[in-house]
Design a protein around this nucleic acid. Sequence first.
DNA 1: ACCTGAACACCGTTCAAGT
DNA 2: ACCTGAACACCGTTCAAGT
Lengths: 219, 219
Amino acid sequence: MTKRILSSRARRGRPQTGRPRAPYHHGNLREAILQAALRLVETVGPGGITLRATARLAGVSQAAPYRHFASKEALLAAVAEEGFRALTAMQRDSARHQGDPIERFQALGLAYIGFASSHPSHFRVMFAPEVADKVAYPTLAKAAAEAFGLLVDVIAECQRAGKVKEGDPKELALAAWSVVHGLSALVVDRQLSELYPVKIEEMARSVTQRLLDGLVLRP
Amino acid sequence: MTKRILSSRARRGRPQTGRPRAPYHHGNLREAILQAALRLVETVGPGGITLRATARLAGVSQAAPYRHFASKEALLAAVAEEGFRALTAMQRDSARHQGDPIERFQALGLAYIGFASSHPSHFRVMFAPEVADKVAYPTLAKAAAEAFGLLVDVIAECQRAGKVKEGDPKELALAAWSVVHGLSALVVDRQLSELYPVKIEEMARSVTQRLLDGLVLRP
DNA sequence: ACCTGAACACCGTTCAAGT
DNA sequence: ACCTGAACACCGTTCAAGT
């Protein structure tokens, strides 16, 4: 407790004598606050990300974030948006190296679960109730839709190549999203720790395989 | 704000003159607090369930809950446990009426998604990070394991009836759990509102069908 | 034995005031 | 135009004191 006061005081206090102060945060305070929030998510978890702690970490007063974010919710929405961007990038990257569309499809799923298990707190913020209102956060909605779009596209590709059953690719993508999201959520929420003590990657492969067994066209 | 103060004061104030006070909460305060928390979860959502509000609703002082719950986390764990019990009951009930094991299997999945979509806040508490530590809450872990056990049992039944592929029923159950949990989580976290505007039940059927296509034995 | 009141260190948010 | 300080109404948690 005492420790916390001291450290926060120290961090947010006036700059140490000798070091000149940054020029009143030359315009990119929004970015600095967002970066601070992203750092907090990774270090202290979703519960520890408070507006005041973020401001402290960014070296500004507790009221300063309100110049750039309407509320804590809006800050969380920005954090979530960054998460969807990172997820999309990871997925795109892992699919790029696969020649076969079925393998690209599986790579997307594995990358999704990989992102979730390596960034559990960030993943949780992406699906937190606070940011569920997509109408209020259209750029977040767009970032989320882009990740989903990757799946739909690859499934359509598989169908064109005659490797996956016919049907609305969006519906198939929803089934696929449900499995990988489900496993990710169970891992992130630590529901599987004792129930089934195998390695995550192994589970991911087995679970996506079960799904593929249902989607793949058998000659 | 003023409204909130008044209403909380009114609720937690001394009993109105005329009505005799209950006999110092004759021993079932734990139960009363738990019930208050369950009511709060349904009415104000997971974010609104605070220890102080729960105490107010139960008509006791803010410190009273600590006699029965070690922390807010412990209260949430009790709420989550109740949730798993209710889920198990709903699932058991919906499967009871099905003759065919495959249909029982599908009924379990539909009941899971049904529970999640009709009690989204409760569902969220059941998988909240605060209660993820199963070692700290063994009775919660047991309640959660019981729900999973239903799935494993039905899958084993399907296998015995020669209707589902061979394999570790736990592994198959994990795949099944992932799909229904995934869809439930996406629904609860309102990820599907615009992406795919069909009714939840329809999605549930389609998604579980996709899974079955992968598990069912084809002659 | 069980509960209350008051206190402490936090929050999110607002708003007048400073540069 | 952008940020700070102080304030307000909340929290979770602790602890001496009451019945």
